[in-house]
């Protein structure tokens, strides 16, 4: 449960300490029946290794791709996923919910 989130952030810290590029993705808002609550984290390193979850699996692939961009550019990014938009039909949230995910680099 929550302990697992702690392990996720510890992993992010240990990656950053050995100068690996790391991005932190955080669910900041949810509408409808989103699977993971606001505050849920997913961490990604420059190798594409990731831990944690922002949606229980539905959009993780897309978030990881965006996170890799954030690691190289350094600029934070806001992502939105939901059944209402184009992207969502490809990666979408089957539950019908909508989520907003903030992706930032650990510097």
């Amino acid at each position: 449960m929550l302990d697992r989130d702690e392990d996720i952030l510890k992993a992010a810290e240990s990656w950053a300490e050995v100068d690996k590029g790391v991005a932190l993705a955080t669910v900041i808002e949810t509408w409808g029946s989103a699977p993971r609550p606001a505050g849920s984290n997913l961490v990604v390193n420059e190798d594409g290794t990731f831990l944690g979850s922002v949606s229980g699996g539905c959009v993780e692939g897309a978030v990881v791709t965006e996170a890799l961009d954030v690691i190289s550019s350094g600029a934070p990014r806001m992502l939105e996923f939901g059944v209402a938009d184009e992207t969502a039909w490809t990666v979408g949230l089957s539950c019908g919910g909508r989520i907003r995910v903030f992706v930032e680099k650990v510097v």
Binding site: L2, D5, T26, I28, A38, G39, F102
Partner: peptide, 21 residues
């Protein structure tokens, strides 16, 4: 124990709560 976005003076702030189990 809830994280959410609030609006303060026209700015959107995300409060992420890390509470112990």
């Amino acid at each position: 124990g809830k994280s959410s976005v609030i609006e303060v003076e026209g700015r959107e702030l995300f409060l992420n709560v890390y509470a112990p189990t």
